[in-house]
Simulated assay, not measured.
Amino acid sequence: MKKIIALISFIAIAFGAQAQYKKAVVQASGLTCAMCSRATLKSLETLPFVDKIDTDLNATSFILVFKPNATVDLDAISKKVEDAGFFVAKVVVTADFNKVKVSNDAHVPFAGQTLHFVNVKDQVLQGEKDITLIDKSFVSAKEYKKYSSQVKMACYKTGTMADCCKSGATSKRVIHVTI
């Protein structure tokens, strides 16, 4: 019995190491000057899973490169931008998928979180793919309203599993994404 538990643990660890986020492009709104950008950059630099950050001042974007095999807290990214006094307008995350089957309105366990795919065709994701986060804390109010009309599950408004189907869920937090 101990051998079976050890084998299951090893497989879970091996799978977790393969499923990971690589980088994110975070577009902030409300930045009006270089000091605003600097304050946001300094706030983002405190994230323990970020290896380096590049900036694109013309697009008011920050390119966060994550540490290899680090546990990435996507909500913490949004919180750091808000802590600096600004808002997140858009977040696109590059994730490394290993034959992950996705379909519309389906939950997929990934990197210790549950991703809820919205407005996607059935497909198998392989290699690095960009996914756009569409939860309220990752998009503008206008974009959130647009996606609210497309998502029928209650978890889109609350972000928790308690308000959604439990099919494929591996965590309490559900992060809504599209491709």
Rank of each mutant, 00 (worst) to 15 (best):
Met1His: 12
Met1Ser: 12
Ile4Asn: 05
Leu7Gln: 11
Ile8Met: 13
Ile8Gly: 02
Ser9Gln: 10
Ala12Gly: 02
Ala14Phe: 09
Phe15Gln: 12
Gln18Asn: 14
Ala19His: 09
Tyr21Pro: 03
Lys22His: 07
Val26Trp: 02
Gln27Lys: 15
Ala28Arg: 02
Leu31Asp: 03
Thr32Arg: 09
Cys33Ser: 09
Ala34Arg: 11
Met35Leu: 09
Cys36Phe: 03
Thr40Glu: 04
Leu41Asn: 04
Lys42Leu: 04
Ser43Leu: 03
Glu45Thr: 10
Leu47Pro: 06
Asp51Gly: 13
Ile53Met: 09
Ile53Pro: 01
Asp54Trp: 10
Thr55Met: 13
Thr55Pro: 04
Ala59Gly: 14
Ala59Phe: 12
Ala59Thr: 06
Thr60Asn: 11
Ile63Tyr: 09
Leu64Met: 03
Leu64Arg: 03
Leu64Asn: 06
Leu64His: 07
Val65Phe: 14
Lys67Gln: 14
Lys67Thr: 11
Pro68Gly: 13
Asn69Asp: 13
Asp73Glu: 14
Asp75Arg: 14
Ala76Ile: 11
Ala76Arg: 12
Ile77Glu: 07
Ile77Ser: 07
Ser78Arg: 15
Ser78Trp: 15
Lys80Gly: 03
Val81Trp: 04
Glu82Asp: 13
Ala84Gly: 04
Val88Glu: 02
Val92Pro: 06
Val92Gln: 15
Val93Asp: 02
Val93Arg: 01
Ala95His: 12
Ala95Lys: 06
Asp96Ser: 13
Asp96His: 12
Asp96Asn: 15
Asp96Val: 10
Lys99Gly: 02
Lys99Val: 08
Lys101Thr: 03
Lys101Ala: 13
Ser103Asp: 12
Ser103Val: 06
Asn104Pro: 01
Asn104Val: 03
Asp105Met: 14
Ala106Phe: 08
Val108Ile: 11
Val108Phe: 00
Phe110Ser: 01
Ala111Trp: 05
Gly112His: 04
Gln113Trp: 04
Gln113Ser: 10
Gln113Lys: 11
Leu115Trp: 08
Phe117Ser: 02
Phe117Glu: 01
Asn119Ile: 05
Val120Lys: 05
Lys121Arg: 08
Asp122Met: 07
Gln123Leu: 05
Leu125Arg: 13
Gln126Trp: 13
Gly127Met: 08
Glu128Pro: 08
Glu128Trp: 13
Lys129Gly: 03
Ile131Tyr: 06
Leu133Val: 10
Leu133Asn: 10
Ile134Asn: 00
Ile134Val: 07
Asp135Glu: 08
Lys136Gly: 04
Phe138His: 15
Val139Phe: 00
Ala141Phe: 14
Glu143Tyr: 01
Glu143Leu: 07
Lys145Glu: 04
Lys145Gly: 00
Lys145Met: 01
Lys146Val: 02
Tyr147Trp: 15
Ser149Gly: 07
Val151Met: 00
Val151Ile: 09
Met153Val: 07
Met153Trp: 06
Ala154Phe: 06
Tyr156Lys: 03
Lys157Ala: 10
Lys157Cys: 01
Lys157Gln: 14
Thr158Lys: 12
Gly159Phe: 10
Thr160Cys: 11
Thr160Asn: 15
Met161Ala: 12
Asp163Thr: 09
Asp163Leu: 04
Cys164Trp: 06
Cys165Asn: 12
Cys165Leu: 05
Lys166Val: 05
Thr170Gly: 15
Thr170Asp: 04
Ser171Arg: 04
Ser171Ile: 02
Ser171Gly: 10
Val174Ser: 01
Ile175Ser: 00
Ile175Asp: 00
Ile175Asn: 00
Val177Thr: 07
